[in-house]
Computed example of a mutant assay.
Amino acid sequence: MNILFVTDPLASFKIYKDTTFSMMREAQARGHRVFSCEPRQMAWVSGARVQAEVTALRLTGDKVDWYTVESAERRNLCEFDAIIMRKDPPFDSEYFYATHLLEQAEREGAQVFNKPRALRDHPEKLAILEFPEFIGPTLVTRSAKDIREFHAEHKDIILKPLDGMGGAGIFRVKADGLNLGSITETLNKEGAETVMVQKFLPAIEQGDKRVLVIGGQPVPFSLARIPQGGEVRGNLAAGGIGVAQPLTERDRYIAESLGPVLNARGLLLVGLDVIGDSLTEINVTSPTCFQEIFDQAGFNVAAMFIDALEQSLKPTL
């Protein structure tokens, strides 16, 4: 197969932990050809098809010069057997426009994973609202009054912007309410932007677990991202330490309940964030943690992903 990965610049990859790199490596090991492009390299003109300046890669196995360029050319996206959308957040206007170009490529015959429409329909923080039976007390609002009332009821809360990533912009306000007003103003821009507020879950001390779901099935190990140094955030980007561990019974139940539903919508790969027994986010844009789980638990997540990809493409092979 010819597989096109839509990514951030290759120069930004940290291959010792990069999930997209592990996907590429597994695909190449199976004899598939690996290509890449950035969203900015895609274009469409009336009377033609969605095209991109694509690079054919050969992974070298070297830790520094990890790829060589075999060719670079402009090609129709529908010519590829599969397109893997792996552009990292933020889900800004340019990301949104990229999903529309990829959806046009689908109309022209391309197969894209995760499906562009599904990416737009599942904003990573708001997607949990569809599954209230699995989440803790949660508020989504622009209203400072609503936030004050939620704090008065739950005493210890977490506030976060809807477009944040890597733990950026997350605040905890304890029972004393210290700085609640100023934090609210910072996040909701005095009522102009929507904020998510959740009851603080003490189980964060045991980690914010990333539960991966591939082809509707849970990966048997999660990566618990454990806060360090008094931090409330377990995100690896915020200094958390990742510890691979077997899924708990509750983790598996959540994953098996949501997995088939999300897979049927075109979400081949999903990263569920679980704190204790509560679902806190549904990550669909560019879920990670493949290599950390493989390095610590020995489970080849990338192989499970390429298996699922091949199975999804079987009717057209």
Rank of each mutant, 00 (worst) to 15 (best):
M24Y: 06
G242H: 05
D273W: 08
D121Y: 04
A244K: 06
R58C: 08
D307L: 13
V211Q: 00
S182I: 09
G181R: 06
Y95H: 00
E231H: 15
R30S: 01
D8G: 10
A168L: 12
A255W: 14
A11T: 15
Y67Q: 04
I183H: 08
Y95V: 01
G240K: 04
T194R: 11
T285R: 01
I226H: 05
P116T: 12
A192I: 07
T60I: 15
R117Y: 11
D18F: 13
P39N: 02
G109F: 13
R117D: 05
E153L: 14
T138H: 02
A127E: 01
A27P: 05
V213P: 02
T280R: 09
T184M: 00
A264F: 10
L178V: 12
H154R: 12
K17T: 03
D65Q: 15
V54M: 12
Q291G: 12
N263Y: 15
A168E: 02
V34G: 03
Q206Y: 07
Y95N: 00
G31L: 14
H151R: 14
I147W: 02
R30G: 03
G61F: 10
L59D: 02
A152T: 12
P287E: 12
R33N: 11
A98P: 00
F21G: 01
V213W: 15
I128Q: 02
A48S: 12
T20S: 06
E53I: 14
F290Q: 13
K63S: 08
V54L: 09
K209R: 11
S286R: 15
I306A: 06
A27S: 13
Q28F: 12
L258E: 08
L102Q: 00
A203M: 14
G166L: 11
V112S: 09
L187Y: 02
V64N: 00
T20I: 09
L309I: 14
K14Q: 10
A110G: 07
R107A: 14
G166M: 10
S36T: 06
L102I: 00
K17V: 10
G276S: 13
C37I: 14
A48D: 07
K199R: 05
A175N: 02
D307Y: 07
N179P: 02
Q198G: 12
H122K: 02
T19Q: 09
F171T: 11
S143G: 09
L102N: 00
G181A: 10
D163Y: 10
G177V: 11
R40M: 15
Q206S: 05
F299W: 09
N76L: 08
T194K: 08
E130N: 09
T316V: 13
R25D: 05
A72D: 12
I204Q: 03
E190W: 14
F221C: 03
E193P: 01
T99R: 00
F200C: 03
E26F: 15
T20D: 01
R172C: 08
T184Y: 09
A168C: 03
L201G: 08
S12G: 06
